[in-house]
Structures are given as C-alpha cells and as structure tokens.
C-alpha cells in the first residue's frame, strides 16, 4: 500500500519534470524561429514595397486551408490526451490517427505549393530568383527557409505521433503513463504556434 503511494508520488514528480524539460526545449525552438522572424521584420521594414509584391505570389487560399488543418489537428491531439486520461484507448488511437491524417494533408498542400513555385523556376539559387529585385529575393529566401524549417518540424511531429500510436496500441502509453503523448502534444502545438505567426506574415499581409 505504502509502496504504491510512493510510486504514484514519484510518477507525479517525473511527469512534472518531464514536462518542464519539454518546455525548456520548446523555448529553444521558439528562439530558433524567433531569429528568422527578426530577420523577416527588419528586411520587411527595409524593403516593404518588394515584400508586398512578392507576398502576392503566394496563394492565400492554400495558406488558409493549411491553417485550418493545423488548428483542427491541435484540437484532436489535445483530445487524444483527454481520451488517454479517461482510459478510452480506442478513441485516443483514433484521435492520434486523425491528427496524423491532417498533418499529411498539410504536407501534401505544402508539396503542391512548392512544386508550383518550382515550375516557375522559383527556388533558392535559381536564375529567375537571382534577377528579382533584392527585397523579393529576400522574401522568397525567407519564405523557403521558414516554411521549410516548419515543414521539417511537421515531419518530426508526425514521427512522434506515429510512435505514440504504436505505444498506445501496445498499452505502453496508458492512463497511468502518458508523458510521451503529453510531450508530443506540446511539440505538435508548437508546430501550430509557429504556423499561426507564419501564416499572416507570409500569406496575408500583401
């Protein structure tokens, strides 16, 4: 009896420290993207005309669609945590797979968006891009860097969620131990947070 209370207590401490560690990692991620946001802000102030005309090249509809995918996926992953806390294993697995599906849709959109740019010879280092006004060149450089780094995070998030799916199925992530799902959820929300800023800055403000 005493043993089990002690164990529960330790689990609680572990989950607190585990989450604290995850948050500290998320702060470093915030500053990784933060640096790029800062570069964007300064160049936007310097070349505002060029940034305006370059941003018009981006498809706001695709951007909005991807925003919706990520927002809904953020909800499903948060719901998956609720499901595991309530010991609803099947529902948790379902919600994690919906999140994965939405992430895949996001990546598919990104793929079409980038291929469309490549068709017009708009890619880092291309002749067309080099001949654009300096501000537009900077805008596209930042666009590819920021959305590319973000897409990499989506991919990592998808791997983490897949591992969670397998572990929930195997019963290794369960009502008593779900720190992995919680931390993967936090990571997934960070991906969403970054996109919440990227979306207006790149697609909307034209």
């Amino acid at each position: 009896m005493n043993m089990s209370i002690q164990e529960n207590h330790n689990d609680h401490i572990d989950s607190e420290t585990g989450k604290l560690g995850m948050w500290i990692f998320l702060f470093t991620e915030l500053f990784l993207f933060g640096g790029l946001f800062l570069v964007y802000a300064v160049f936007r102030a310097k070349y505002s005309e060029d940034f305006h005309s370059a941003a018009r090249e981006l498809n706001a509809f695709i951007g909005t669609m991807n925003t919706v995918f990520l927002l809904v996926s953020s909800m499903t992953v948060a719901m998956a945590i609720t499901a595991i806390q309530k010991n609803q294993k099947k529902l948790a697995m379902f919600l994690v797979s919906v999140t994965l599906l939405l992430a895949a849709l996001f990546m598919m959109n990104k793929f079409f968006e980038w291929s469309h740019k490549f068709e017009f010879k708009l890619y880092p280092g291309s002749e067309v891009l080099k001949n654009l006004p300096r501000g537009e060149l900077l805008f596209f450089g930042l666009y590819f860097m920021m959305t590319g780094l973000h897409a990499l995070h989506v991919l990592i998030g998808m791997i983490l969620l897949s591992i969670n799916f397998i572990k929930i199925k195997a019963g290794k992530v369960n009502q008593a131990h779900y720190l992995l799902l919680e931390n993967s959820g936090l990571y997934w929300h960070l991906v969403d947070l970054i996109w919440i800023f990227l979306f207006p800055l790149l697609y909307l403000i034209t």
Partner: peptide, 22 residues
Amino acid sequence: FSVAVALIIASIKVRTVITHFM
C-alpha cells in the same frame, strides 16, 4: 493597420493555444 491587426490576432491565437491546448 492590417499588419497590426493580423499580428494582434495571431498573438491572441497563440495565447489561446498555450492556455487551453497546452
């Protein structure tokens, strides 16, 4: 003006995600 509005709305959204989802 629209830049400011877009950024203010984005900040509110980020705050909402952190408080509730996170």
